[in-house]
Computed example of a mutant assay.
Amino acid sequence: MSIFKDGEQIKTGKSNTTTIMEFVLLGFSDIPNLRWILFGIFSLLYLTILMCNSIIILITIMDPILQIPMYFFLSNFSFLEICYVTVTIPRMLMDLCTQKGNISFLACAAQMCFVLMLGGTECLLLTVMAYDRYVAICNPLHYSVVMSHKFCTQLVTASWILTAPVVIGQTWQIFSLPFCGSNKINQFFCDIPPVLKLACGDTFVNEIAVYVVAVVFVMVPFMLIVVSYGKIISSILKLSSAKGRTKAFSTCSSHLIVVVLFYGTAGITYLQPTPNLSEGMGKLISLFYTILIPTLNPIVYTLKNKDIMLALRKLFTKLLP
């Protein structure tokens, strides 16, 4: 038996097979000349995400005008975005600095688990936010009764909890596979498609399981959002006042933009029984839904929302009189 400590593998003489003990995230190693430029760009994006989402959370807590369910959900969404990018970006920045993408088997599994869990929570939370807009526009007289603080808290709690057991089970299933070939993951984080490519043997069952879970946590929530917005648009078009229609559309447009961006990229990645994207394209799409879209989300929500802009002006007036 021979052990290779730095090679991230242990070779057993009996079966003449190699068991992977850790992976190597290749990340952007194919463009080493740009690593410091990428480090600067991603650091700036990460700080932007942290700052913008933290400000949204702060004003939704402090400003009395924003003490309604819509902004309660938005503050939870902002906190979720902070958690979501923190799982991937700091690790990627460290790899860009050191040019070493070594990640232990356990750390890789944990990163995948948290990315999937937070991604699934985002799908559910976006659905809850669509339901909130549906009740506000289609049933405004009963809005305060239906969307009580207790019910809103239950919806948010369910969004955070429901994905956990499914994702933990799926992650355990994937990392229970034998990995006996290459240990190089051509991605900047441990994502399902590139990890499954490294597994030995038949991964058909795992690919189907990934597809089924994606349908449940991506496609079903997306269809519920489509149904909600179908009814919302129908109700808005029935309004006699042009000003009322404009106001109703403006309260929904930000959420709708975020839904299209997030579900579009996540669906391309996971809603395929057999992932057939090229590695370069897969990496590019992953950049969109893990970094670029979380950067755009707070900007979209603030620029298109008069209440938030007013709350921001109040906050800056207090801080910078």
Score class of each variant (00 low, 15 high):
residue 55 I to Q: 00
residue 168 I to K: 01
residue 35 R to A: 09
residue 52 C to Y: 10
residue 157 T to V: 11
residue 20 I to W: 03
residue 79 F to Q: 09
residue 49 I to N: 10
residue 315 L to C: 05
residue 133 R to Q: 07
residue 220 V to Y: 08
residue 244 G to Q: 08
residue 164 A to L: 09
residue 228 S to N: 14
residue 205 V to R: 12
residue 231 K to H: 13
residue 151 F to Q: 06
residue 79 F to L: 10
residue 248 A to F: 00
residue 267 G to N: 06
residue 205 V to H: 14
residue 223 M to L: 14
residue 91 R to C: 04
residue 25 L to M: 03
residue 148 S to A: 05
residue 29 S to E: 11
residue 321 P to L: 15
residue 137 I to M: 01
residue 191 D to R: 07
residue 175 F to H: 10
residue 254 S to G: 04
residue 150 K to A: 08
residue 226 V to H: 04
residue 163 T to I: 11
residue 295 T to P: 03
residue 48 T to G: 12
residue 92 M to Q: 05
residue 167 V to P: 06
residue 77 F to S: 11
residue 131 Y to C: 09
residue 217 F to G: 08
residue 217 F to H: 12
residue 285 I to A: 03
residue 33 N to S: 13
residue 129 M to S: 10
residue 219 M to G: 07
residue 22 E to H: 13
residue 186 N to M: 07
residue 70 M to N: 08
residue 154 Q to R: 06
residue 292 L to Q: 08
residue 171 T to D: 04
residue 66 L to Y: 03
residue 251 T to L: 03
residue 289 Y to V: 05
residue 41 I to A: 07
residue 199 A to H: 00
residue 183 N to Y: 05
residue 304 K to P: 02
residue 50 L to M: 13
residue 252 C to Y: 00
residue 281 M to E: 04
residue 291 I to F: 02
residue 315 L to Y: 14
residue 260 V to R: 01
residue 280 G to T: 15
residue 307 D to P: 01
residue 130 A to Q: 07
